Amino acid sequence: MEGMQPYLIVILVQAIYGVMYLLTKVALNHGMNSFVFVFYRQVIATVVLVPIAIIFKGKDALKVSPAVFLKMFMLSLFGITGALNLYGVGLRYTSSTLGAASFNTLPAMTFLLGVLLRMEVVKLKSLSGTAKIVGIVVCLGGAMTYAFYKGPRLLSWSHHDSVARKDSQHSNNTWITGTFILLCGNILWSLWTVLQGRVLKEYPSKLLFTAMQCFLSAIQSFFVAIAFEHDFSPWKLGFDVGLLAVAYCGIVVTSITFYLQAWVIEEKGPVFLAMFTPLSLVINVILSMFLLGEAITLGSVCGAVLLVCGLYIVLWGKNKEAGRSEIHQERQMTVLESTASEVV
């Protein structure tokens, strides 16, 4: 049973994300302002994480140099505040299914940004390097298919058919814009993923790093929300789906999922976690069809297939390259050991 734990936990993580897309979309459909939603989400995450960080790290939690603090502030600004707000706007214009599908472009975008920033190397003459480039192109092709082609309906839940028609009509006018906004949010999130590795070298505690970014993002999100929403009536939270979505994203997604993902990466590595990313899309498609009446179209199926295939091609290339690097290091160690024995 212990051998099954990583599989069960990674499935749970993707299920949590699948529900997150659905709850966020429902809250936005019921009139909740997307900028206010991000603010409350980050406030709850801060309330949960900061006390935990102080309890476990004590006085070290307050020891941050001005230079590192500035880097954290900038990372929070574009990587969390910017990305989440763009995601909220894009989700309002599209669907929870597209939001889940766009998440599959993150590994490809992260790799592409790593190449542009010279943090990743692409060997075009190698099979792994070619695979990563092909995977990126296929991922982008899947996103474009989602944006520009819907096609005939393949499946829909008749009980919510009127709601589905309403959402479809709304999406036809804004779908392309929403897709572009979602991709911009993913670019910011990928850039945050690439750059935070450098900051973690100066501030290695992941718990404190996450708590501090949530705190800074809550402050930034407040000013963003104030700038876009001058009326304070949308700020009122009632006992409805808006409060449920905010609490779920702030507590379950930011706090619990962070720990679970860290545990999976430590046990099985980041590639293992990334390989299960499409599962959140599958879960969201099923939930959205039955609960929101979102129809499954030919375009969404083709786009999802391309996104998932592109993701696995990129992961295969990175895994192949990592394996080759390990073999090369082992050979170097063998040569050094044999040389040392000859000297002795």
Score class of each variant (00 low, 15 high):
L216H: 01
T179E: 09
D60E: 15
R198H: 05
A100C: 06
L182I: 05
L216A: 03
V344N: 11
V335G: 08
L191K: 07
L244E: 01
Q169H: 12
N104G: 02
D161A: 15
I136G: 10
F222E: 00
S190N: 04
Q213N: 15
K150A: 09
T97V: 15
T24Q: 15
E202P: 02
T297Q: 06
K57T: 14
F78Q: 01
I52A: 14
T94Q: 08
L336C: 13
A340C: 07
Q332A: 13
W189E: 10
P152E: 14
E330L: 14
I265P: 04
L117C: 03
E267M: 07
A322F: 10
P66T: 02
C249Y: 06
A274D: 03
V271I: 14
A45E: 05
F39M: 13
I226M: 14
F290N: 06
E294N: 11
F290G: 07
Y17N: 08
A262L: 03
A27K: 03
L12I: 09
T110C: 02
T97N: 11
I80R: 01
I256N: 01
M1N: 02
L86M: 10
I52F: 02
K320T: 15
L8E: 07
S95C: 12
E342Y: 12
C302F: 10
G129P: 01
L140V: 08
D240E: 01
C302E: 14
V314P: 03
L77E: 06
I176A: 14
P270A: 04
T297H: 08
S34C: 12
F290H: 09
Q261M: 13
A247N: 06
V138T: 04
T145A: 08
W316P: 06
K236T: 12
V138M: 05
A262W: 04
L140G: 13
C302W: 14
E342G: 10
V308M: 01
S280T: 11
F103V: 15
L124T: 05
I80E: 02
I251K: 00
S233K: 13
R198D: 14
V314K: 11
M109E: 07
G3M: 01
S255G: 02
V194P: 03
I55L: 07
A340Y: 07
L311D: 00
T179N: 13
I136P: 05
E120L: 09
V241R: 04
Q169M: 14
V314D: 06
G82T: 00
K123E: 15
G142M: 08
Q5H: 12
M32Y: 12
F69Y: 15
T177P: 01
